[in-house]
Design a binder for these strands. Structure first.
Lengths: 249, 249
DNA sequence: CTTAACCTAATTGTCTGAGTAATTAATGGT
DNA sequence: ACCATTAATTACTCAGACAATTAGGTTAAG
């Protein structure tokens, strides 16, 4: 059933920590985007008119409209005169957009969606590892080695460690030299760090991830596509296994 | 070298055919987005301030700013007080966003980028076909059959035929039941129709695509993942071959 | 009764102009 | 040479008016 919805509370104008949205319109977009991803506003729901909604958020219509343009650009809503702006069906959402992904993980993420992401990783990353094994140059290998060193030094429980993990997967996708895959890296890496953070939020790491990563690196360094692909396949599968335990996926 | 850039000419206010951008801010976003994708504005370039740029486009600052929010949401530009709004490096662009993809193909698309897209298809679509073979239901099979019938009835030279082709690939990705893959479908299908249109722009179709598609459909209907994957692999490879001939990829 | 054309009202879209806040770059003191 | 302070530039936010579009109801015709 589609009904017209209103915001729960005004936007906090106080400077927020950072990352949510440095500017007012960004904060609004974040708030609404997260609400939509959390299922607070359902597809088909229409956001009560610009004037009343902006009024309730205690912001100007300009700022509200600019936020709506952001959501529109990401396929979350659509606005038409007389009809209002309504939440689009889920299949129109750009779920792979890094920012949307962030909104999805701002709340309790849907287990089915997390499973989808791992399935995507299971498809893309082994293939990418194989390509990387064929095309890697010295610079790319150095990036991977540095990232692995970072993962070893800091643990995955720390922010720095998760960033190193992200860098590792990022370096592999970059080594493919494929623009489309590199763009996917932004999404995949976001998924990696979010799910990793999730695992640690609930229990501490049951398994040392370094050996898995090292096998991938060694295969790529040895220019062995088949081995790289297989090693990466195992890595993603184990990661899924860990995640499954901690969030009943 | 990064310099400050200005628009070439004002926005045509007359009602444009359709599809470019139904609203003024959409038209501005389309114009600027296409210009950026075409390399007219290079990464690092800064768009001369809001006031002067909007003035030169002959639009209000509101409309201009809303357009910039769209580009920002897609990772093409970034705005900061005192620094201006500048074009971001290419690796920040959301190249898989359907709208960005459209802008990329609005001009002469980069051959390396087209090759990247085919490589992505070659990775994703066979895997998706395999998953579809495992999980397809009657409704999904019907969608595929209908799409294939549409491709047969209209030719691929017509818009309707290309839409049917799009529907076919779309149906397969939907049949996987994987949200992440379904989102990718929007991008992949855009790539499919754009490249197909490109092929036909230069020479007429050298080969009948129906048998290739039918083999995929039959394998999925038979619940044979390996055969579906292989059939799809061949299909994408042949499509790449055709495209390679007509645009020196 | 169904269908098509028309009108109206509601809502988003666009414009203008003013003032605020953030950030960079220059300035001056230590 | 380095750090705090200041100034200037730019995007950001606000307010209010008017225009353009269209959903939905109304009327007329088939």
């Amino acid at each position: 059933m589609s009904k017209t919805v209103t915001p729960a509370e005004p936007i906090k104008r106080a400077r927020e920590p950072r990352g949510t949205g440095r500017r007012l319109y960004g904060a609004i977009a974040h708030k609404l985007g997260a609400a939509i991803l959390a299922g607070e506003y359902l597809p088909g729901d229409v956001l009560s008119g610009e004037i009343v909604f902006a009024e309730l958020l205690d912001v100007s219509r300009s700022a509200y409209r600019e936020a709506i343009q952001v959501l529109t650009a990401k396929g979350l809503v659509e606005s038409r005169p007389k009809a209002g702006t309504r939440v689009l069906p889920r299949n129109r959402w750009n779920l792979l957009d890094p920012e949307v992904l962030g909104w999805a993980f701002a709340g309790q993420p849907d287990v089915a969606f997390v499973r989808s992401l791992f399935e995507l990783r299971a498809i893309v990353e082994p293939a990418a590892a194989a390509l990387a094994a064929e095309r890697r140059d010295k610079a790319a290998l150095k990036s991977m080695r540095d990232a692995l060193a970072g993962m070893t030094r800091h643990t995955l429980a720390s922010e720095a460690g998760r960033m190193a993990d992200r860098d590792f997967h990022n370096a592999i996708l970059h080594a493919t030299g494929n623009d489309a895959l590199i763009v996917l890296s932004a999404s995949v890496c976001a998924a990696v760090s979010w799910t990793t953070q999730f695992k640690h939020r609930q229990r501490d790491l049951p398994r040392n991830p370094i050996p898995d990563h090292r096998r991938v690196l060694d295969a790529i360094a040895a220019s062995d596509p088949a081995a790289a692909s297989e090693a990466m396949r195992v890595l993603v599968e184990l990661a899924l296994e860990d995640t499954r335990q901690s969030m009943q996926v």
